[in-house]
Design a protein around this nucleic acid. Sequence first.
DNA 1: GCATTTAATTGAACGCCGTTCAACGGCTGT
DNA 2: ACAGCCGTTGAACGGCGTTCAATTAAATGC
Lengths: 208, 208
Amino acid sequence: MARRYDHSREEIRSMALDAAEAIVAAEGYKGLSARKVAAAIEYTVGTLYLVFENLNDLVLQVNGRTLDALFERMAAVSGPADSPRKRLLALADAYIAYAKAETPRWNTLFEFVAENGNSLPDWYLVKLSKVFGLAETALEPLSDRRQALEVQQAARVLWASVHGICMLKIRQRMDLAGGQSTEAMAGMLIDNFLRGFAAASHGDQQTE
Amino acid sequence: MARRYDHSREEIRSMALDAAEAIVAAEGYKGLSARKVAAAIEYTVGTLYLVFENLNDLVLQVNGRTLDALFERMAAVSGPADSPRKRLLALADAYIAYAKAETPRWNTLFEFVAENGNSLPDWYLVKLSKVFGLAETALEPLSDRRQALEVQQAARVLWASVHGICMLKIRQRMDLAGGQSTEAMAGMLIDNFLRGFAAASHGDQQTE
DNA sequence: GCATTTAATTGAACGCCGTTCAACGGCTGT
DNA sequence: ACAGCCGTTGAACGGCGTTCAATTAAATGC
C-alpha cells in the first residue's frame, strides 16, 4: 500500500493538527503521541515525519493555532470606545475564560515551551506579540501623559501578571488565592496597578 | 547479588533525591529517568520503586526540596524592619535570583504540576503556602487601615503576578518585555500596585 | 499496451521510557 | 547446618520518538 495520494501534504498537515488538537483536548499534552495522531488520521507514523520535522514541531503548530484562537477571542471583546481599564478587564476576562474552557490546550502552551532550549521560531513569537499587543493597545490612550515606552512596558508587566494569576489558579487549583475567583484577582491587579500608574507622574520614586 | 543492606531505606531515599536533583540541574526535567537515577546511586530501577511510589512521587519530593530552598533564600532577605514595599521588592529579587540561578530546578516546579490531575498532597501545599506567606507577612503592616482578608488577597495577587513575570522572562527568553530586566518589571508591578492599593480606601470603585 | 521510472507510504527496527514482579542469594535465628 | 526471610535484582511488557529500506501505485516513455 503506497502512493495513495488521497490527500495533499497540506491536507495531511491540517488533518494531523486537527487530530492532535482533539487528543490534547481529551487527554492533555502528555496523552499526545505520534502513533495516536497517525492512527487518528489513518496514516502511519512515517507519514507524519514527512509533514512535520518532529513531534515538537507538531505541538508548536498546535500551540500556534491556540494562540490564534486566543487572539480572536480577546480581540472580539476589546472595543476601542472603552477606557483602558475596561478594555484590560475585558481582555483579562476573555483570557481567563479561554483558559478555563480549553484548559488542556491552554496548558499545552506552557507545558511545551521549555523543551527545545528556549528558542522559538519567529512566526510563533509574532503570534505571541499579537496577544500581548492587545494589552498594549488598550493602554495606548495613556501615552498622552506618559512616555510611550513606559506605557508599553506597563502593558507587558500587566499582561504577564494576569497570566501568572491565571496559571496559579488553573494549574494547581489552589486555595492559595484566599477565596477569590480568578477574575476577581485579575481585577484587583488591574485596578490597583492602573490607579498606581495614573497617580505616579513620570520619574517619581517611592522611597519607602 | 541481593541483600546488600549498604543503606537504609531513608538513605537510599535521600541519595536518590540528591541524584535526581543533579540530573535535573544538568539536563532538565525531561532528562530525568528512573534508570538514570538508579544508575547514579548504583542501584537498579526496582529498588527505586520500593522507596518511591513512582517517578511522579520522586519528582514531587525534588520539588518539595526546591520549595524549601526557595523559602530559605527568600526568608533570608525579608527583614521585619523594612517597609512592605522594600520587603516585597527584596522578596521578588530573591525569587528571581533563584529562578535564574537554578533555572532547571525552578522550571521543574511547573513542568511537573499539571500531570497528576491537579491534586497535590497536603505537605506540598504547606510548603507552597510558606512561600506565599512571606509576601503576606510583608504586607501585614497595611492591615491597620485595611481588612486583613483584603491584604492577604493583595499579597497573593502580587505574588502570582511576580511569578508570571518571572515565568515570561525565563521560560521564553522573550523580547516581549520591552527591554526591561525581570527585576525592573517586578519592581514596576510592585510599585504601581502598592501605590494604587494605598490610594484606594476600602470599598472604592473605579467607574471608568 | 507494456515497461520503466518516480515518489508516496509503509512498518519494522532501534534504543529509550515507566512500571512490575518472580526469582535470587546473602543474612539471621535456631 | 539449615531454613526462612527479605532486600535486591533484572528481565519482561507495552509504549514512546524517530529513521529508513522496502513496497507499490501512479505517471511517464515507448
